[in-house]
């Protein structure tokens, strides 16, 4: 377990990840803040949760085939939102193409906070994946997740992404107004290298 990963999971215990602030700046944080705060607080044993979060983050960092099947098995068994959040934060930190099916699957999770994090990690896998993620985000029933589509389109710009956002803003007047009022303009440069690939 790396020290940084440990910091994430520790910060997750308090319900707010510091990660978005470091990576995407205030804008991404604002979008996530609207959509990710829905994660219900876990009421179980703190130690067990911490161990689970660490275990999942380590699996993501292992970068081998066994870890893919192990993560899939854990997700299929059902995980509390706090554990999924830690796992998805690790996926964001360590983008792995072989986890794409898992991220795509979690992008259909019922909890909007999990969907948003999954879309964020999914979009970070590459240009094609980012378009798929933006399309999924733009079509989401949750306004917070749709807001994330605009942000992702700025982080991962492409013609298709631009078209999707235009279509979204056409259907979502509130978001269009927000975007027009510069509430959702993208950062000029991502905070860390590789974020805007």
């Amino acid at each position: 377990m790396t020290r940084i990963a440990m910091q994430w999971v520790t910060s997750r215990k308090f319900g707010v990840s510091l990660r978005p602030y470091r990576r995407g700046g205030w804008l991404l944080a604002a979008a996530l803040g609207m959509s990710l705060t829905a994660g219900p607080a876990y009421a179980g044993p703190e130690d067990s949760m911490l161990e689970l979060q660490i275990e999942l983050a380590e699996m993501v960092e292992q970068d081998d085939e066994q870890s893919v099947s192990a993560l899939r098995a854990r997700v299929d068994e059902g995980l509390p939102p706090a554990a999924l959040t830690a796992m998805l934060d690790a996926c964001l930190e360590h983008p792995r193409a072989d986890l794409e099916p898992l991220l795509r699957d979690l992008a259909a999770h019922r909890t909007s906070a999990i969907r948003a994090r999954s879309l964020l990690a999914w979009a970070g896998l590459g240009p094609a994946e980012s378009v798929d993620a933006i399309e999924a985000a733009a079509d989401d029933r949750d306004a917070g997740v749709r807001r994330l589509a605009v942000v992702l389109a700025k982080l991962h710009p492409s013609d298709r992404a631009e078209a999707l956002v235009a279509q979204l803003l056409e259907h979502d007047p509130e978001l269009a107004e927000e975007a027009g009022g510069q509430g959702l303009s993208a950062p000029d440069q991502p905070a860390e290298e590789g974020d805007a690939s």
Binding site: P40, R110, T111
Partner: peptide, 15 residues
Amino acid sequence: SFLRRYHADDGVLYE
């Protein structure tokens, strides 16, 4: 599968 997936999610339980 649905039950397994969301059995630890209070939000889904109460919605």
